[in-house]
Write a protein that binds this DNA or RNA. Sequence first.
DNA 1: GTCTATACTTGGATAGAC
DNA 2: GTCTATCCAAGTATAGAC
Lengths: 209, 209
Amino acid sequence: MTRDRIIDAVLRTVRDEGLVGTSVRQIARTGGFNQALIFYHFGSVDELLLAALERANERRIACFRERLEAVRSLPDLVRVAVDLHAEASADECNHSALSAIVAGWSTNNELGPRVLEILHPWDDLVAGALRRSLEGTPFAQLATCDHLAHAVSALFLGVELLSRLEGDGGRAAAGLFASLGDAAEAVNPLLHVLAAMAQPGTSAPGAVG
Amino acid sequence: MTRDRIIDAVLRTVRDEGLVGTSVRQIARTGGFNQALIFYHFGSVDELLLAALERANERRIACFRERLEAVRSLPDLVRVAVDLHAEASADECNHSALSAIVAGWSTNNELGPRVLEILHPWDDLVAGALRRSLEGTPFAQLATCDHLAHAVSALFLGVELLSRLEGDGGRAAAGLFASLGDAAEAVNPLLHVLAAMAQPGTSAPGAVG
DNA sequence: GTCTATACTTGGATAGAC
DNA sequence: GTCTATCCAAGTATAGAC
């Protein structure tokens, strides 16, 4: 099926040229096929980009679902973030292109809602991971967790974009994640103090994930 | 001077149309002047966008320097973030356009380093605010603070971009900041526990910013 | 400094042969 | 499904009159 070839070409093009610089002609050049195929299979560039976004999102979910579902603490979550960033820097495309598309389309036109809808399953995974990390603390309420998960997603997006500017393949972000990991390690035991304060008598020693 | 009119037109165009959608023709249409002026005054689109980015950054520094320099704790910092986001949603352009330019150019071409250089003074302000917020804790080392400041900048960028997708003028981010504020309020006193552990005898009651 | 006119390139999209 | 050829709009950029 050619749809796959085209989508791969889009993702590689976006990663290498940025969203500005991703045109039908350029995509076709990258993939070594004819422009007209894009319109035959997808109808328009916007639809193609949405399809590519969806594909990239599915791939990162396939790749990280298990790891995210295993998260039980903030340090766990940071470790997943490190992996994610490593893949974004090293892999064939996906996450890097995904960030660029989301960012480049961040104009509140008709496409915005569709983009958010596509990203939604991923956000749910992150929210779940966060909820388990904050179990028992005052932040474990659904609304709060969703807000904080949104913040985590935003952080991932921003880190990815800024690290692309640095052009060193994401090495500059390594220090960031290290510090973030330290912070998570330090805050984590304190969260359980909060949990104990919130639900006195519930927290027993040894229950610390 | 016309340079100002042009730069204003760029910022408005980027805010309204996104970076994809910002062309010489569109900018001229927005500002009600002739295309040729852009090349007379700036030479090329890239140079114009860089100039606009620099201008937007100067403006947000002028607007937020005092507030950032007054930050002494994490809750303080979140309050500034709320203000910043409010201005981004409501104002004539600046911060919104700034985010879009940074994000849209996040392809590691020749422009990346220049963009980072332009943003640098702002990052310094954020790093200073964070350093004062973490004074005495194990995170107060220079390197760690810079990393975390980078994370804070990334978070701001991501929030701004995602809230643009929502197209509700940034109201959806309000909940996010509320939760972030709660988290900061809760973590803040605990930080001083850490500070006390790190430097026993140094922390006296009442020294909690 | 500003406008008109224009050159040239690239982008999106379609028709029609194969 | 894929390719060729083509249309038209939009993009960047320049020359030259005013």
